[in-house]
């Protein structure tokens, strides 16, 4: 067990190293000069000396290799550097916005699972009937309707019906939990619909497969009630591939909430990423990308563990 964990950890570090080096070079290859943007953004003309001084101050005049090593060393110390735009530590910038994104991702995932589970199972059980077709139709809708369009639609609806505008500043949990929840619920629903569509389809097809299996017939031959056959015997097996999908979707969400955050005016890391790219703030970009990569690896690992816990065949080899 320890050997396994150690190996996984080592792989994790190796992946992060690879991502770090890759993102470092990609970002610097992109056109645009942050110094010029920052100082000359409003059409102000600045002399070359000032530009050079600013560059030196930000440490951008050092040789590339030096910058890379500094960056890597910083990573080891969990110091992601300073944002080239705001000059605040990247970790701080991220830390201010991360909780919101995480909350949104978690809430979306929970809602998606809550929707998808009954829908997928019912669709499989009522295969071919109107109910099944209705559910399949709604999943197709969920997959094809663009998130931003739906988000805008929801916001417009809320505005017109309840006169409700999303707050422009952050709302904290301690001061106004209801407000915070209200802020999250609508974007979460939008994201959840799409995610649940995918999960429900996956669950439906694996449920259909499982229901054909011999052990379901054995359960019925024991006289087990149909409901118990479905929940106790069939669903546990059908959920296995869906669990993987949930994990992957969740990992993807953290970085993929960009559009939703933009539409619903939420100050999360997705929005921060867009900002950073626009401003060519590569320290921030690097930091965010490292975060997403790390999240992905950790979530994959957790999925593996969960899968092992759910499916005893993975745990032991005969």
């Amino acid at each position: 067990m320890t050997g396994y964990l150690l190996r996984k950890f080592f792989q994790f570090l190796l992946t992060l190293l690879g991502v770090a080096v890759l993102i470092f070079f990609i970002v610097r290859v992109l056109p645009g000069d942050i110094v010029a943007l920052k100082l000359q953004g409003d059409g102000v003309t600045v002399s070359a000396d000032v530009l050079a001084a600013e560059k030196a101050r930000l440490g951008l005049d050092k040789p590339m290799l030096q910058q890379l090593l500094d960056w890597l060393w910083g990573l080891v110390n969990l110091d992601l550097g300073r944002s080239l735009w705001t000059e605040r530590p990247v970790t701080q910038e991220i830390a201010e916005r991360l909780p919101l994104s995480v909350e949104l991702a978690v809430l979306s995932t929970i809602l998606a699972v809550v929707f998808a589970l009954p829908l997928g199972i019912v669709a499989a059980l009522t295969r071919g009937t109107v109910v099944d077709q209705g559910i399949r139709l709604s999943t197709v809708a969920g997959l094809s309707i663009p998130g931003f369009w739906l988000g805008l639609l929801v916001q417009t609806f809320l505005l017109k019906t309840f006169g409700w505008l999303p707050s422009l500043s952050g709302v904290s949990w301690t001061l106004d939990p209801v407000g915070r929840f209200a802020m999250l619920i609508f974007p979460a629903l939008v994201v959840a619909w799409r995610m649940s569509a995918m999960l429900a389809r996956m669950l439906r097809s694996s449920m259909l497969e499982v229901l054909q299996e011999d052990y379901i017939r054995t359960a019925r031959a024991k006289g087990v009630r149909p409901r118990v056959v479905v929940t106790h015997h069939a669903a546990r097996n059908a959920l296995l591939p869906t669990v993987t999908l949930v994990g992957l979707e969740f990992a993807f969400l953290l970085g993929g909430l960009t559009v939703t955050e933009q539409v619903f005016n939420l100050n999360g890391v997705g929005r921060l990423l867009v900002q950073a790219v626009t401003q060519n703030d590569f320290m921030l970009i690097q930091g965010l990308v490292m975060l997403f990569a790390a999240t992905f690896v950790v979530v994959s690992f957790v999925i593996d563990l969960v899968y092992g816990a759910l499916d005893p065949r993975i745990r032991t080899v005969r």
Partner: peptide, 24 residues
Amino acid sequence: MRRLRGKDIGMVFQDPMSALNPVL
């Protein structure tokens, strides 16, 4: 019928490899 199945009438099927639930 469900009351009878498994209680008064038992059945053994052909393929033991797939007739048992793998997660229980």
